[in-house]
């Protein structure tokens, strides 16, 4: 089932929110993780409403707002958000208050904002959207769960579905994840640095000339490289796509995890198939595949404007089919096929 993508918007470490400057200049990362390049929120979010929002909510509200505006949709018929860690900044803040104050008097705002579905809930509140409102928090498949649900909602006849991926990082969360061994060399931007950001989409059943669509999505867990190969072959066969039809591979590869999976996929395509490692742009996080879908959509939708992008030399035109492959810690594997 095709899910047509009316619009998309993203915030990540590189400039993607201001589309006139889309990936125009490479922004060299500073600090220990790939901090998002955030737009000024004034003018996008009412100052009265912004005062309690943490960054993950601001990034989500702003990208949701841009995607809805571009799609000319006021109130979506469903809001579905995927986030692996959710509102980690407010979670840490509230936990710190509890521990440092030894369970004394606590200000409730951080607790209220710490709930995973605060993101989708806040968007619904701002839009006064009474419709279906779901949040998935399923590690490396948080965004995938959301997209799969969105496809069900579309098949049931709902239209204009707002789907998003959101993650935030802060120094304290970073330190913990670093000590857990979740990230490689802090100084090399090889795709393994931790990142953050938000990517939102408006999905529709409505086909239109030149409108990109998600042709299919497939997920699997804990598989071997051999099983992965089989799984790719059946995914492509099911969609009547030959490996040679794929114009671009968007891969979650990084230097830190040389595990054979990305290499396996690359080996199944001709050597001259262009490949982009999207985590060099958005960093590693639970919903990085959401950014991959955003980038793929932008490439399909707006091939010309990407001429100004620093990615331009790596793209072969025209791009009509993109295969996204990502895995999270070799546990959660994802294929997405984007077409135009």
């Amino acid at each position: 089932m095709r899910a047509y993508i009316k619009s998309t918007s993203a915030i990540c470490a590189q400039q993607t929110f201001d589309k006139s400057e889309y990936l125009a200049e490479y922004i060299a990362p500073e600090g220990q993780y790939l901090k998002a390049t955030e737009p000024p929120y004034r003018g996008i979010i009412d100052p009265k409403q912004i005062r309690r929002m943490s960054r993950i909510i601001k990034m989500s509200v702003a990208t949701a707002h841009q995607a809805l505006a571009e799609a000319e949709v006021q109130v979506p018929e469903a809001i579905i958000v995927g986030t692996g860690l959710g509102c980690i900044e407010d979670t840490i803040k509230f936990l710190k208050d509890i521990i440092e104050g030894e369970e004394g008097i606590l200000s409730p705002t951080a607790f209220i904002q710490s709930t995973h579905n605060t993101i989708a809930g806040q968007i619904a509140l701002l839009l006064q959207c009474p419709n279906y409102n779901f949040t998935y928090a399923n590690r490396g498949h948080s965004f995938e769960n959301s997209v799969i649900d969105a496809r069900i909602q579309l098949s049931e006849g709902k239209d204009n579905i707002l789907v998003g991926a959101a993650e935030e990082m802060n120094l304290q969360a970073f330190e913990i994840m670093y000590n857990m061994g979740c990230t490689g060399d802090r100084n090399k931007n090889d795709g393994s640095a931790l990142g953050e950001g938000a990517s939102f989409f408006v999905l529709t059943n409505e086909q239109k000339e030149g409108r990109p669509y998600l042709q299919d999505i497939s997920v699997s867990n804990h598989i071997t490289a051999e099983q992965l190969e089989k799984s790719l072959n059946s995914f492509l066969a099911k969609n009547k796509v030959d490996a040679s039809d794929v114009d671009l591979l968007l891969m979650g590869s990084n230097e830190f995890e040389k595990d054979g999976f990305y290499e396996k996929i690359a080996s199944l395509f001709a050597d001259n198939t262009p490949q982009l490692d999207f985590k060099k742009i958005c960093g590693e996080h639970f919903t990085a595949s959401g950014f991959a879908m955003h980038l793929g959509t932008m490439i399909l939708q707006d091939q010309v404007s990407l001429n100004n992008s620093y990615l331009a030399p790596q793209l072969k035109r025209p791009v009509r089919k993109i295969l996204i492959y990502n895995h999270y810690k070799a546990m959660n594997h994802t294929f997405m096929l984007l077409s135009i």
Partner: peptide
Amino acid sequence: ENLGVKGYNGTISTA
């Protein structure tokens, strides 16, 4: 993992 359930899985967090 402990059950040996291999099909699709998902986690919902809506409070």
